[in-house]
Design a protein around this nucleic acid. Structure first.
Length: 777
DNA sequence: ATTCGCAAAGTTTTT
DNA sequence: CTTTGCGAAT
């Protein structure tokens, strides 16, 4: 199939977009407001390059998440079906580069990528080895400090402690030790991927030159979120050939805390003097009401490039600003509204997203959505991979792929328990470091270690023998490897040994991991294999696991929501200490970043937006009164629909003996709401008709109670579905669309209970049992 | 060596 | 309310 013509590339673009797509050579800065068709511009720009005879092999587009890269790739495929442009994340790009030239920075090609909990273990070891006294600083603090240093492109060799700076002095001792341990284990942390890649290009000018010239056209997405290492990487690869286009929006810079430097985009013009600048200001996503709120809010930031947000979209419903008594009310009201909209057919579950500042805020929402029977998905991808049983099994895989991986060795040597304890391990570690051996190699020589007595020696040698039996396995497919690991180590059996509920749950998770490996093998028969699997497992981001096609409400952090859009958005917890977060409410720069975060959240909404806060919040064991976020005062209230309780009037009865004044349910007289008159809506009518309950629990206006809705759902569904708990592994079931299949795995509980089912014709599918119409056969 | 229990600490955001 | 860590008992 031929690629599309120039006309087809340019036709769907507005004037500004067209300029961005047609200027292919030289540096280009694309300032893209939210919803301005940025991805379209990037894909059409690449298509246009190809149409102009530029080889797609020399085109590189860098993003921050795999999701964004996949989206780009898919859309580009439609415009230029046989293109070979490289699209992917910074970290993946660097990883690829490093694997090819690992030895130049003192690594071997099969290096391990450590996640944060793994690298923290290395850090603890480094602190111990460096023999520093950490009275004033926690290991966490030190980790983040070293991460900062790395993000600024400073290697351990180049680090110079500022005189008189206590933390710097400690960093100066620990950082080199930490790097030494990583190198010994043939491992890197996330920051190293970037730092080593930059180092590599600096060490080898010839390689730099070659790559610079072979990637003739580069594009960088979300440029406002690049840190100094990424900046340096980009500069190194765009020196001799400067066809570099970056897109970004300073107003959406929300990763300053992990080293992103907003100056990279603000000063792009200085770095590349002959830069072309395009502003994409036309918004195709949101209603005027939503955009006006976003615009007013962000106007409070001082450090920004003024930018217009305009749209030809309809005015739309006013944005709602609601105050709830407690998080439960907030969650239940949101769940009910969503349930109602689904029930009436007005919306589907997938149209909704609930956004919050911190992950723990999702709990009340989960609970409420479950009680109302609305399917939802919580987007935090690390959760699964952080489970102990998963980390254990993957630990074995890491050790097989990289026998020098000391973190993996220490994790698995005694799981399941093999009577090799802390003391033995300490002696082994000492020997390994003295002789400059990996832990595994030290284990091979453990007979020569006087300090280790006969019994543990035998156990260690048994372990080594077992490892050697597995090490023979071909690693071009993952599933066979993981199956042998589970078999040889007895890990899965060990989990279920005690017959506890928890054990089976864990075994199920392990089964799910096996299925994931299986799927990986199927998806990537050519370039897959163990190493590739471990790499992608290490580099998945939270949004990457988000199933955008499935029909469920999305729950995620404001950070994770960047780049996405939904017809209807709820942003919760607009309270002082939460947004802006208490740990960041220091200087103006940090407050501005928090404000940008809210800006990002607001601009995810296409048609409906509700922003809410609570008057009390359950924190650290009890309820505390919550203060409204300062950002709420910055919104154009006169143009919004405000639901706020009238100022509390305490009468004596409120504080009667049996009543806890801290209890959020107990505030008196709350059902009266102060609503501005000119914005009367259907919703408000219903609010007014809603009868207050005769309990002392204030009834917040609710359209359908959770119990009512749940009961109706239950009645509707009970006759056609089995109870989620009644499914068993191995059971044959019939699906209305897919036909007959057999249940392979079961995980989760209640509404979350999920089955992997193998269908004769279509292969494996995964279902939330509560939401599919299965029949037992 | 492993397990259990209690106490303290602490809740950003993520590749 | 949760999770994590440490220390004592078996």
């Amino acid at each position: 199939m031929p690629n599309v013509s120039q006309d087809e590339i340019l036709a769907p673009l507005n004037e500004q977009q067209r300029i961005a797509v047609t200027q292919l050579d030289g540096p280009l800065l694309i300032l893209a407001g939210p919803g301005s068709g940025k991805t379209r511009v990037i894909t059409h720009r690449i298509a246009n390059m190809i149409a102009h005879g530029i080889s797609s092999y020399s085109v590189v587009a860098l993003t921050f998440t795999n999701k964004a890269a996949d989206e780009m790739r898919t859309r580009l495929k439609r415009l230029a079906p046989d293109n070979h442009a490289w699209t992917g994340t910074f970290h993946k790009f660097c990883s690829k580069l490093l694997r090819r030239h690992a030895e130049l920075v003192g690594l071997a090609q099969n290096f391990t990528i450590y996640d944060m909990s793994d690298s923290k273990k290395v850090m603890k070891q480094a602190i111990e080895n460096a023999d520093v006294d950490l009275k004033h600083y926690s290991p966490d603090k030190l980790s983040s400090q070293i991460s900062n240093v790395k993000n600024n492109g400073v290697t351990a060799e180049y680090f110079q402690p500022r005189p008189g700076h206590a933390l710097d002095a400690i960093v100066g001792k620990v950082y080199p030790e930490y790097q030494k341990l990583l190198k010994m284990a043939n491992g890197v942390d996330f920051d190293d991927l970037l730092l080593h890649a930059v180092d590599l290009l600096r060490q080898s000018p010839e390689l730099r030159e070659t790559l610079d010239r072979s990637f003739t056209h580069m594009m960088v997405d979300e440029y406002q979120d690049t840190n100094l290492s990424q900046y340096q990487l980009i500069r190194l690869l765009n020196h001799s050939v400067q066809n570099l286009a970056v897109t970004g929006d300073p107003d959406q810079s929300i990763y300053g805390w992990r080293g992103a430097n907003i100056n990279n985009i603000l000063e792009f013009e200085k770095d590349y003097p002959n830069v072309g600048i395009v502003r994409l200001e036309q918004n195709y996503r949101s209603t005027q009401s939503i955009l006006r709120v976003a615009d007013q809010l962000i106007a409070n930031n001082v450090r920004r490039k003024k930018k217009e947000l305009r749209t030809d979209n309809e005015a739309g419903q006013p944005v709602r600003l609601v105050t709830f008594p407690s998080p439960q009310d907030e969650a239940i009201d949101i769940a009910d509204s969503i349930a109602l909209a689904i029930q009436t057919g007005e919306r589907r579950a997938r149209d909704f997203a609930v956004l919050y500042r911190a992950n723990w805020l999702s709990r009340a929402l989960e609970h409420a959505l479950r009680s109302v029977g609305v399917p939802y998905q919580i987007v935090n991808g690390h959760e699964f991979y952080q489970r102990k049983e998963i980390k254990d099994v993957i630990g074995y895989l890491h050790l097989l792929n990289n026998p020098r991986d000391n973190v993996a060795f220490e994790r698995v040597i005694n799981t399941p328990p093999r009577k090799i304890g802390k003391v033995t391990l300490g002696r082994l570690r000492r020997y390994a470091q003295d002789k400059n051996l990996s832990m595994l190699d030290a284990a091979r020589h453990c007979q020569q270690i006087d300090a280790i007595s006969n019994a543990p020696t035998a156990k260690i040698l048994q372990f080594v023998a077992m490892f050697d039996r597995m090490a023979y396995l071909p690693t071009d497919a993952v599933e066979p490897v993981i199956r042998v690991v589970l078999e040889e180590t007895g890990y899965r059996d060990w989990l279920t040994d005690d017959g506890s509920e928890e054990g089976f749950e864990r075994a199920n998770n392990v089964d799910e991991l096996v299925v994931a490996c299986q799927e990986f093998d199927q998806e990537r028969p050519e370039d897959g294999g163990l190493e590739a699997y471990l790499e992608q497992a290490a580099l998945v981001s939270d949004t990457d696991v988000w199933e955008s096609e499935a029909d469920h409400v999305t729950l995620m952090t404001l950070h994770a929501a960047k780049g996405l859009e939904f017809p209807s958005i709820y942003i919760v917890g607009l309270e002082d200490g939460i947004l802006p977060h208490e740990r960041s409410s220091g200087d103006d720069d940090e407050i501005e970043e928090e404000r940008r975060l809210l800006f990002v959240g607001i601009t995810r909404a296409k048609r409906d937006l509700q922003i809410s806060r609570c008057m009390n919040r359950f924190r650290r064991g009890s309820y505390w009164p919550s203060i409204a976020s300062r950002f709420l005062m910055e919104l154009p209230r006169d143009q919004m629909q405000v639901f706020e309780p009238i100022a509390q009037q305490y009468d004596d009865s409120t504080f009667a003996d049996s009543i806890d004044p801290m209890d959020p349910w107990m505030h008196d007289g709350l059902p009266s709401y102060d609503v501005n008159d000119d914005l009367i809506s259907e919703r408000e009518d219903q609010v007014k008709e809603s009868p207050a309950k005769a309990t002392n629990r204030p009834t917040f206006p609710r359209l359908v109670t959770a119990a009512q809705f749940a009961a109706e759902q239950e009645a509707l569904l009970s006759d056609i579905r089995l109870h989620p708990e009644s499914y068993k592994i191995g059971m044959d079931v019939e699906h209305p669309d897919y036909g007959i299949g057999r249940i392979l795995t079961l995980t989760g509980e209640g509404q979350k209970r999920t089955a992997t089912i193998e269908f004769a014709k279509l292969g494996k599918k995964r279902f939330r049992l509560a939401f599919c119409n299965l029949r037992a056969v």
